[in-house]
Design a protein around this nucleic acid. Sequence first.
DNA 1: CCTTAATCGAGACGGTACGTCAGGTCTTTTT
DNA 2: AAAAAGACCTGACGTACCGTCTCGATTAAGG
Lengths: 210, 210, 210, 210
Amino acid sequence: MSEPRPAKAAPDASRRSERSRRAIFDAALALVSETGYAKTTIEGIAARAGVGKQTIYRWWPSKAAVLLDAFLDLAARANEALGGDAQSEIPDTGDLAADLKYVLRATVDEMNDPAFDAPSRALAAEGIVDPELGARFTEALLEPQLGYYVRRIQAAQAAGDVDPDADPRLALELLVGPLHHRWLHRTLPLTHAYADDLVDLVLRGLAPRA
Amino acid sequence: MSEPRPAKAAPDASRRSERSRRAIFDAALALVSETGYAKTTIEGIAARAGVGKQTIYRWWPSKAAVLLDAFLDLAARANEALGGDAQSEIPDTGDLAADLKYVLRATVDEMNDPAFDAPSRALAAEGIVDPELGARFTEALLEPQLGYYVRRIQAAQAAGDVDPDADPRLALELLVGPLHHRWLHRTLPLTHAYADDLVDLVLRGLAPRA
Amino acid sequence: MSEPRPAKAAPDASRRSERSRRAIFDAALALVSETGYAKTTIEGIAARAGVGKQTIYRWWPSKAAVLLDAFLDLAARANEALGGDAQSEIPDTGDLAADLKYVLRATVDEMNDPAFDAPSRALAAEGIVDPELGARFTEALLEPQLGYYVRRIQAAQAAGDVDPDADPRLALELLVGPLHHRWLHRTLPLTHAYADDLVDLVLRGLAPRA
Amino acid sequence: MSEPRPAKAAPDASRRSERSRRAIFDAALALVSETGYAKTTIEGIAARAGVGKQTIYRWWPSKAAVLLDAFLDLAARANEALGGDAQSEIPDTGDLAADLKYVLRATVDEMNDPAFDAPSRALAAEGIVDPELGARFTEALLEPQLGYYVRRIQAAQAAGDVDPDADPRLALELLVGPLHHRWLHRTLPLTHAYADDLVDLVLRGLAPRA
DNA sequence: CCTTAATCGAGACGGTACGTCAGGTCTTTTT
DNA sequence: AAAAAGACCTGACGTACCGTCTCGATTAAGG
C-alpha cells in the first residue's frame, strides 16, 4: 500500500547536493525569463547550472516540475527575506474595500512585472494541460493565496461588513477570477483602476442585506 | 503595405485541396482528444490525415494554429448544424437572471465535456504562453462570446434591470472570470448550482441603485 | 516469407543522398585513423560529416557497419584507381614461390601502414565479437582475398608445382594464418623476410611427392 | 624509476579483500558468458558481485583488464585442479605428429566450448584494438602457450624428426596461425580432422631434408 | 481539351532535444 | 584504510520531431 510506484527506486535524498539544487533553480528561472518557457530545455538548464542532465532527471520528472519547485523556492525566499513567519496575510484595517484594493493592486503589479509574469504564465499554462502538475500548482501556489481572501472575507462577515450568508469562496472567485481572466487572455490592460472598480462592484453584491 | 512578409511566396489558395484540409482538422482534433495536446505532433497529424507534412506547413505556421483553425471549423460546423445564421446570441426572455443561468449552465456543461475540454484547454494554455496565438485565440474565439454578454447586459440596462452606470465589460468578467478560474485551475467542481449562485451574486451587485 | 524483420520499414534507397554517404565514409575513416576506433562515435562521425545522426542510423545499424562499408568503398575505389576490372588476382609468372612472396610482402606492407592498419584491426576485432558483422566482414573482405590464393594454388597444381592431393584451402591458411597471427597479436615484427620464410616453408610441405 | 604512474597513490594491496576479488571475477566471467562482452559493464559487474564500483576501479584500469585477470585466474585454478605444478607442457611420446594432434584437438575442443569461447574472443578482440591490453594478453596468455610448442619442436629437432634448420617459432605459427584464423573469422568449422590435416601438412614441410 | 504549373503524398535531410545508460570521480558511512 | 553505496558531471547512445528540401503523380486553371 505504501509503494505505488514500481519505478526506479527513489534516490537517497540525504545525499543530495544542495549546491546543484540551487544552481538548477537559478538556471531554470533565468532561462525562462530570458528566452521563454518553450525555448527552455532541460539540457539548457543543466548546462547553465553546470550540472549533469541526470541530476535533474534524478529529482524531477519534467521541466515543468523543475520550474514549479524553482518558483516555490523563489517565493519562499522572497517571503522569508521580506516579512517574517507566515506573512502575506491580507491586512485588516477595518476597511475591507481598502484592504482588498491594496492586495489586488499589488497583484496587478506582479502580473505586469515580467520577472513574475514569465514563469508564472508558463506554470499556469502547463498546469492547465497537465492535470498532475496542475494539482501541484494549485495546491502549492494558488490555494494558499486564496486562503488569505477567505479569511479576510470571513473577518469582514464577523465585523458585519459582508452579508453573513455569502459564500466566501464564491466571493473570492469574483475578485480573483476576473483578474486572472484579463491577465491570462490579455483581453484588456490590467490597471490599478481596474482593481478598484472590481472591488467596488463585488462589494456591492456582498453588502449585508437591508 | 499589403505584403508584410517578403518570405515564402504565398501559396495559391484557389488550388488548395479541401479534402486535405478536412482530413487535417479531423486528425488534429482526434489526436488532441486521444493523446493530449503535448503528445500531438505535426508528423502525427500528417500521418493520421494521410497527408504530406509540407501540406500542413504550407498553410499553417504551427501546431497550435492548426488546432485553432480546426477548433474554429468545428465550432462553425456545430453552429451551422444546430441553429441558423448568427445564432448563439444570449436569449432575451426579459428575465436576465434566467437567461444568464441558462448560458452559464451550458458553458459548464461544455467544460465538463471531454470533447470540448481537451482542445479547448490546449488552446487556452498555448495562448497564455504564446502571445501571438493568444491574440488570435482571443480575437477569434473569446471576444465574440464575450460580445454576447455585453449585448445582453446592455439590453438589461435599457430595460432598467441593471444599474445604467455599471460597466458591462466588467460585469461580464465577473460572470466569466470565476467560471474560467475554476475550469482552468480545477480548484472545485463546476456544477449548475455554481453557475446559478454566481449569477445571483453578480446580479446583486449590478442591481439599479435605489 | 519474404519479410522476416518486423522492423522499421526500410527507407527508400533511391532517394538516398550520395553526398552524405561519401561524407560519412570519409569522416568515419578519418576519425578511426586519427583517434582510434574506440574513441570514434557515431555522433562524431555525423558532426565531422556535417550530417544528421539520423542519416547514419537510417542506413546502418552500428558504428562497425558504417566502418565496414567505408572500408569496402575505400578498397573498391583503390582497386578502381589502380588496376582495371577484376584485378587483384595473384599474378601467375610460373614461379609460385615468387608470386606468393610478392603478394605476402604487399600484405605485410599494408599491415604496417597505419592508414590500413587502424580501420582494419577495428573491423577484425569487432567481427570477432559480433558474429553478424563478422559474417559480413568475412564474406565481403576476407573470402574474396582468400579466393585469389585458392585459384593460384590450383593453377600451380595444374602446372605440377604443387601436390595435386593437397587441399588448396588448407594450404592458403598456412600462408595467411601465421601472417594474421603475428599481425593481430603483435607477437613479432612483420617483415618481408618473414613473408619469404613463410612461403618457403609452406611450399616445402606442398611439394609434389616423389 | 619504480613508480611509472605518478597518479593515484597505489592502494595497499595487503588490505585487499580477497572476498571481493573472487566475487568480481565470478561476476565478470558470468556476465560475459551470459550477455556477451559488449553488454557487460563495470557497473553490472559491481552490482552482480555485490561490490562498490570503486573497488573495481581501485584495482583495475578497465573492463578488459578485469576480464583478463578473471580469465587468468580461471585458467590457473583449472590447471591447479587438473594437473599439478607447471603442467600443460605438450606431451612427448616420441611421436611428434601424434603429440601435436593431441594438443591441437584439445585446442579445437576449447574453441568450440562456449564457456571458453566467449571470454576468449572478447579478450582477443580487445587486445587487437588496445595495444596495451594486447601486450598483457600476449604476454600472460598467448606466449606461455606458444612456448610449449617451441620446446616440443626443439625436442623433435634434437630427436632428428624435424629439420634442424627450421625455425621453431615459424613452425609453431604454421600450426597455431591457421587454427586461430578459422576460429576468429569463423570461415570454416573447426574439427579434429582439420587439426590432423594441419599437423600432417605442416610436418611434411618440417621433415629433415634428404 | 490540353497543356502546364502548383499542390499533393511521401519521406530523406540537417538539426535539436529527448530521456537513458555507463564511465570514472568523489563523498559518506560502515566494517 | 578499504569497502559498499550511490550521487555527481560527463558524454554518447538511439529515438522522436522539427521545419526544409526534393521527388514523381495528380489535378485544376487558363490558354
